Simulated assay, not measured.
Amino acid sequence: MTRGIRGATTVEQNEADVMIEETRKLIEEMVRNNKITPEDISHVFISVTRDLNAAFPAKALRQIPGYTYVPVMCMSEIDVPGSLPNCIRIMMVVNTDTEQSSIHHIFHNEAIKLRPDLTAKGGS
């Protein structure tokens, strides 16, 4: 069965190295906390807010050994007035037998404000 794993982080500046590093850390924690391998991943969608355009955050996934064949796509997040700026969001779709309520969704930096209900459950 497939399940979605949510992740999000923020960066302080629109710089390629910072965006890629923060995305890499987020992906690695999502994988580690949910005990999945690259072979478990069906695909990954990554969105960024309109203030982030220095890099494709998908590059972070490409730098992790073993992730060459994982399909990944970047896109723009809807520009809702008052929404969290400098934000990178991830939707990772995985094949797993884990119950939906047992999935660990991961939020870093200011992105913990997005889903406090999920971060209180055990995601970071």
Rank of each mutant, 00 (worst) to 15 (best):
M1T: 08
T2W: 12
G4K: 12
I5C: 11
I5H: 12
R6N: 13
G7Q: 00
T9L: 02
E12I: 09
N14E: 08
E15L: 12
A16P: 03
D17R: 12
E21Q: 15
E21L: 12
R24D: 11
L26K: 03
L26A: 07
E28P: 02
M30V: 12
I36G: 05
T37A: 06
T37P: 00
E39W: 01
E39V: 12
E39A: 13
I46E: 02
S47G: 11
T49W: 03
L52Y: 08
A55H: 05
A55M: 06
A58W: 05
R62K: 15
I64E: 06
T68F: 14
Y69Q: 14
Y69F: 12
V70G: 04
V70T: 10
V72D: 04
V72E: 03
C74R: 05
S76T: 08
E77D: 11
E77M: 15
D79E: 11
P81S: 09
S83L: 00
S83G: 01
L84H: 07
P85A: 11
N86G: 09
N86M: 13
I88G: 05
R89E: 15
R89P: 00
M91F: 14
V94G: 03
N95H: 13
N95A: 02
T96N: 07
T96C: 03
T98M: 09
Q100Y: 05
H104V: 14
H104I: 14
I106G: 03
H108D: 02
N109T: 06
E110G: 01
E110V: 01
A111F: 01
A111N: 08
I112E: 11
L114E: 09
P116R: 02
D117Y: 03
T119L: 05
K121T: 04
G122R: 07
G123V: 00
S124E: 06
